[in-house]
Structure formats: structure tokens, C-alpha cells
Simulated scan of single mutants.
Amino acid sequence: MRNSGRAQVEAFLEMLSAERGAAANTLAAYGADLEEAIAFMSSRNSALPAAGSDDLKAFIADLAGRGYAASSQARKLSALRQFFRFLHAEGLRADDPTGTIDTPRKGQALPKILSVEEVSRLIAQAEADIAAAGSDQERYQRIRFRALLELLYATGMRVSELVSLPERVWSGDGRFLMIRGKGNKERLVPLSLPARQAMADWIATRNAAWPANTDDPQWLFPAASDLGHLARQVFARDLKALAGRAQIPARLVSPHVLRHAFASHLLANGADLRAVQELLGHADISTTQIYTHVLDERLRQLVNDHHPLAKSGINRDVAADNG
């Protein structure tokens, strides 16, 4: 069998150290990745410097089969790319076999969501916190927080949109809000009855506390900050604290997770994907489609329960065999 390629790998690592100043841990990582490739090629009675594209694709496939994450596969492929470019630059290879190999891609991460029961616990805890408030100031802050929470879950707004809502968007009975989102685009969103009630409580509480000798508030949720309205970091911090009191791990809860919950719960209960796209303010429906993972089981059950031929599939197969 030909030389396994360790001599060429050592020369490559020396180049990285001398010419590029690679750190010791970087050299060790490259060395380990290439050593793994050497071992794989040896199992195929081949040598790494002579490997072709099919050999390297087989190596990546073997990594995937052994449970390596796409990020780990991509890192090892990166080491191979640099190694073969080095061989080509040194005149040791006439070609680069990695040129036709696609980098393994991470699967699209599904959004974290909360169940309906978990969201209900958050809201119930927010209401209990109001009842347990020890001072007028604490009660004021907790009524404001409950309104923010109800509004977020009722609309799926981005937290930056939520905290910076101008006062003028609230009018009449509050059945709808006009939200200005990304790209300065506006969208109209309806409010649920619980959200409208929570907002009515907040407006009444805020107005009662607003000094009579000052102008009307510019923001729906004014605060003593440089922005003039509640900071999104403050709301996010308070939301995690609420989760802890509701016996839900704080790491699972954030304003964006509630936005995910809004979309997922709507879809799970039969909402149209295009309608959810409009409510979320997504420019491209492909962004909204990530939430359809929640529909998989529901749709499977729907077909099994209601498709006229689904339950008789086995009988039809038997009848065909007997026919």
C-alpha cells in the first residue's frame, strides 16, 4: 500500500505554523481531523493524498453515519480542503478533489415553543402577582407587565415592536392595533378579549398615575428611560423571572418564544399559513413555514380519521390480491 499521507500532513501542519502562525490547538485540531481521514482511507486500501472526490464523499457519509453533527462534518471537510489546496500549491496534486463536495449544512433549527398550558400558567402567575403586590408602584408595574404579556401572546409582535408602541395606536375599544414593523411596513392585528381587558386595566392604571400637569404620554408603555418607553431588555428580564415563579425553566422562555407560541398555536388550531404570515409581519412565507412542524401530527391524524380510503387501505390491498 502507498504511503498513508502522514508525511504530507506533517508538512501541511508545518506550513500552517510557520507561514500562518496557527496556534497549537488549531494545529492539533487539524492534525486530528486529517488523521481520522487517513484511517478511513487506509480502510479502503487507499492513501489520503491520492484520495478522489468519491473517497472523500464516502468519508463524510461515514461521519454522518456515526452520528457526527453537520458542524463537525463541515469542520473536518474544511481541514481537508486546506490540505488538498496545499498539495496542489506544492505541485503534489494536479487537482483539488474537494472542489465538487458540498459543505454539510445544519438542519434548520425548529423554534422553541411553549404549550398552551405553559402560556396559561405564565398569565395566571402574572395575575397572581398583581393580587400580591405590596405597594402602588409594584401594582402599577405588574399591571403593565400583564398587559405586555397578554398583548405579546395575542399578536405575536416582535418585542421591539411591542415596547415601542406609540400611544396613538390605542383607540376606541382596542379591537385592533396598527403595528409598524420591519421596513417601516404597517400591519393590522386583532386583539383577543383577554388582551383587550388587560390593556384596559393598564390604560386606566397608567392614566390615574400620570401627573395632571404633564403632557399625554407619547408611548403606550412609557418608562423613565432614555428611550421614553420600556426597554425590551427589562421586559425580557421580567418575563424570565415570571417563568421561574410559574415553575417553568427560565431558559425556555423569552419574548421571541412567546412569538413562536402565538404562531404555532394558531396553526395547530387551523389558522391559514398566509394569515399567520401577515400577522407576524413576515415578508416571505418561507420564514413562516418553519412553524408548520406543529401541524405534522395533527394533519396525520386528520387524514387517518377523515380520509374516506385511509382506514380501508388494508382491505383494498387484500381485495386487490384476491381479485
Rank of each mutant, 00 (worst) to 15 (best):
F12A: 14
S17A: 12
S17P: 06
A22E: 05
A22F: 07
A32W: 14
L34V: 03
A39H: 12
M41L: 15
S42N: 09
S42H: 10
S46G: 11
A51G: 07
G52A: 07
G65W: 03
Y68I: 06
A69S: 10
R85E: 11
D95R: 00
D96E: 01
D96L: 01
P97M: 04
I101F: 10
G107P: 13
R121E: 00
L122P: 04
A132K: 13
G134I: 10
Q137D: 15
Y140R: 08
R146G: 04
L149Y: 01
L151H: 09
L152W: 00
W170E: 12
D173C: 02
G174Q: 07
K182G: 05
V189F: 02
A195E: 09
M199F: 12
A200N: 13
W210V: 00
A212N: 13
T214I: 13
P222G: 07
A223G: 07
G228T: 03
V234G: 13
A243Y: 00
R245K: 14
L252N: 11
V253C: 04
V257P: 00
L258F: 05
L258Q: 00
H260N: 03
L267Q: 08
R274E: 07
A275L: 01
E278Y: 04
L280P: 06
L280Y: 04
L280D: 09
L280V: 07
Q289E: 09
L295Q: 15
D296Y: 12
R298P: 11
R298S: 11
Q301D: 14
Q301C: 09
H306R: 14
H306M: 08
P308H: 11
N315P: 09
D317C: 15
A319K: 13
A320N: 14
N322R: 14
